[in-house]
Write a protein that binds this DNA or RNA. Structure first.
Lengths: 236, 236
DNA sequence: GAGCGGATGGCAGCTTGCTGCCATTTCACC
DNA sequence: GGTGAAATGGCAGCAAGCTGCCATCCGCTC
């Protein structure tokens, strides 16, 4: 890599990434952090073990930070690998909101940004300008802080209501009485209440207030619905 | 600016920003977007009017996007200026979560990142590498999407419960009955219910579920409390 | 068609939530 | 101390929420 920090280096394909950025990735001493949608990004084919081993040799106490989207847990094999990573000492977090940018950060002095796949080739840009690296780190940190630890994520994997449950959520979010909601949905009051009870169990809530907290926290209610409230607080 | 897109350009101070990046900012044809904590960043002293006028001349229909943190509304003068900006056609949004990076985006081909103030001088880095610009744009878009339109933000300025109200929120979040909560707070049931009713009015909610949604949405409940639920859904 | 399991709906009984009313207490001000 | 406004607490009456029980219906399988 050139000595000019303000010149970004564009790498084409995984092979070039390994060859030219491999040493950079292996040389991390204080910080190694990556963000990826799934395990395919930053797979570093053919060189991964080497780079990881080298990094461990140089910085034995360094704990890598790995930020993934829920897609990384889409299949059991990927999930097993993530658990393994965490078991080996990496800090693994799941970011519920979509990751806007797949990134690697090294020691606060370099960032690697993954571009999209075009004609089967993916480009990666190595950036070392201090302000740009600082900016990318700030954005990474924001995502990291809002992410959930892998273990906690797996333990509290968001419950997913079925179609019926989602309809009930809509009625609850609208602030209707059970009777009005049941009429709206074309079911009896008893049935509606059964569904509310099932939803409460699903959300692990003891009260409707608590259920509302949980539903919003888990993003189970469309943004418009949760924003619809009366015109505002009265001035008291 | 050099013809080499992969060379980032570091500008020292506002004056250099105006002189060397001014033409870039004035030349925006399809996109002009900025993110700032408050109105001081990107003030472009002495040249603002000119740059804005030039941009209007070249791209009469271009609507600038301006993303600010709630700090931008901290005083009435700033608020007035923001309203004026919006009245003149800019899209102004308020991002409730802290802005990790103050940025300007021009036409999807350039980004300007603001560094911190050091020894009274602030540096700005102009970036044109396509992948980096793309990455910064993605991050900007994420923040933009989660931000609230200025008018909506002002209309729905988050209500702030007083100390009593926050205590009531804690009890509600814990899922207690009113009787148990009142006992806990050392007030009568009637008084507790009065406070719950006041909180519901403040939140503009018709039901406790709706109040829970709103409270969580507005970030009025500490993260630990809202995360505390029973061990999980039973497997049915 | 018969049988079975699950879902639905009506009803009853109970608990919890909501609010008006009134007496009393508290607090701030003169 | 006196006064007035606001807050508190007890009570009653009512609405809303919760769940068990049982009869009936529905969908699926043989």
């Amino acid at each position: 890599m050139t000595a000019d920090l303000d010149r970004n280096v564009v790498l084409r394909g995984e092979r070039e990434l390994v060859e030219r950025a491999g040493p950079l990735l292996a040389a991390a001493r204080e910080e190694f952090a990556c963000a990826a949608a799934d395990l395919r990004t930053w797979a570093l084919p053919g060189a991964r073990e080497e780079i990881v081993a080298e990094r461990h040799r140089r910085a034995p106490g360094l704990r890598a930070r790995k930020l993934y989207s829920p897609l990384a847990l889409a299949d059991e094999e990927s999930e097993r690998l993530l658990v393994e990573l965490a078991d080996r000492g990496a800090q693994v977090r799941i970011c519920r909101t979509p990751l806007p940018q797949e990134t690697i950060l090294v020691d606060g002095r370099a960032a690697v940004l993954a571009g999209p796949v075009e004609r089967g080739v993916r480009t990666f840009t190595v950036v070392r300008s201090p302000d740009v690296v600082r900016g990318v780190r700030a954005l990474y940190r924001a995502a990291w802080e809002s992410a959930v630890d892998l273990a906690a994520y797996r333990r509290a994997r968001p419950p997913m209501p079925d179609e019926e449950g989602r309809r009930v959520l809509g009625m609850l979010a609208a602030g209707l009485t059970d009777e009005a909601a049941a009429r709206r949905l074309g079911v009896s009051l008893r049935t509606y209440r059964r569904r509310v009870a099932a939803l409460m169990t699903l959300l692990g809530a003891d009260s409707r207030f608590q259920a509302g907290l949980r539903a919003q926290q888990l993003g189970l209610v469309p943004a418009q619905t949760s924003a619809s409230h009366r015109s505002g607080p009265k001035t008291s």
